[in-house]
Computed example of a mutant assay.
Amino acid sequence: MERTERFCRIELLIRSRGCVSFADLMTELGISRATLKRDLDHLRTRMDAAIVYDRERNGYRFAGTGRPVRRAAEPEAPGVWFSEREIHALLTMHQLLDGLGGSSSMGRHLQPVLERLQGMLGTSESEARELVRRLRVVPPVRKPVRGRSFERLAGAVLERRRLRLTIDPGDGGGERERIVSPLRMIHDGGIWLLDAWCHEREVLCRIPVPSVRAVQWLEMRAREVPMRVIEAELDAMPALRAA
């Protein structure tokens, strides 16, 4: 178990049980006495975790918590010990990584990260599975991108190259060509968008990537536009300005 995951598990165990003995923490984490002492010291001195030792209860708890000790006969019901923002972030990351699957090269390389996230979601594997099953983040419907358009567009953004695009905006007017300088790409509402400078119209524009039918790299360098200008003109727009 990695150190970051241990820190999270220690806090989860203490929050869920109210007070946990040193021996129980060692058993749950599967670590040595020396390692647990270092982890507790790091949490308290470097991460400002308000963990204190309670002599009467012979265990560690959070300062200021008046929670009673759970009796042994009481079942340990799974709990959520995260804020709304924390659980949303953890579930979103878990969902994105899990969606890659183990068959792709990226999925295989990120499998250890997924397993660490799983460990952070609960004090046990069954609790983590139950949390993921009961609390869900429903992603927006993702609109597919044609062929290799995304890779070519993203490459041009990074290499700062102008593009000739064939676009079908779906307005019944048919396909049209535009010479653009790609500036950045954003993902919003389940769709990738290309922010670019349209050389024909001399304006900033925002192009839905699924509407791009063909991408041709040009030799000319892309025109540079300050990011503050892009953000001011495009991020505040109530609707897309198609090229």
Rank of each mutant, 00 (worst) to 15 (best):
G99L: 00
D168R: 01
F150L: 08
R162Y: 00
P140L: 04
V137Y: 14
R142Y: 02
L96N: 06
S105M: 01
I167F: 08
E127T: 06
K143I: 15
E130N: 05
I179G: 01
V132W: 00
G122E: 15
A89Q: 13
G174N: 12
L158F: 14
R146K: 15
R142E: 04
V137Q: 14
V80C: 02
H109Q: 12
R152W: 14
Q111R: 06
L121I: 02
S103F: 07
V145F: 11
G173P: 10
R148Y: 01
G102A: 10
A156L: 06
S103K: 02
S126Q: 15
H94P: 01
D168K: 07
D168T: 06
R178W: 13
R160C: 12
R142W: 12
D168H: 08
R162D: 07
A89E: 12
V180W: 01
E115P: 05
S105G: 05
P169E: 15
R178S: 00
R162E: 15
R178E: 10
S83T: 03
M93S: 09
G79P: 04
V113P: 05
M106C: 08
Q118P: 01
V145L: 05
R129M: 04
E84A: 03
P140F: 08
P78V: 06
P78H: 13
M106N: 13
L100W: 05
E86W: 11
T166L: 05
R160V: 04
P139E: 15
R160L: 07
R142C: 03
R148A: 06
H88Y: 15
V80G: 04
I87E: 01
H109V: 07
T92R: 14
V137W: 10
G172Y: 15
V157S: 00
E177F: 08
T92Q: 14
Q111P: 05
G107R: 01
G101Q: 02
L100Q: 02
D171P: 04
D171F: 10
L91M: 08
V137K: 07
V138M: 11
E84D: 13
E127S: 08
R152P: 10
L163Q: 10
V138Q: 14
R134Y: 12
R176P: 07
R152I: 00
D98P: 04
Q111V: 02
M93T: 06
L135K: 10
L117I: 01
H88T: 13
P144I: 09
A156G: 04
L114M: 00
V157N: 05
R136P: 03
E151G: 09
P140N: 07
S104P: 01
L97I: 14
H94R: 15
L110H: 11
L163T: 05
R161V: 00
F82K: 04
P169V: 09
V137P: 03
P140T: 02
P144W: 10
G170T: 09
V113Q: 06
L158D: 10
L117N: 01
R178D: 04
E115G: 04
M93I: 08
L131V: 09
S124N: 11
R160T: 14
G101F: 04
D171A: 03
H88S: 12
L163W: 14
R136H: 12
W81A: 00
R176W: 03
V137C: 12
S103A: 13
R152K: 15
S149T: 11
R161C: 00
P144S: 00
R152G: 08
G174I: 11
R108W: 08
R108K: 10
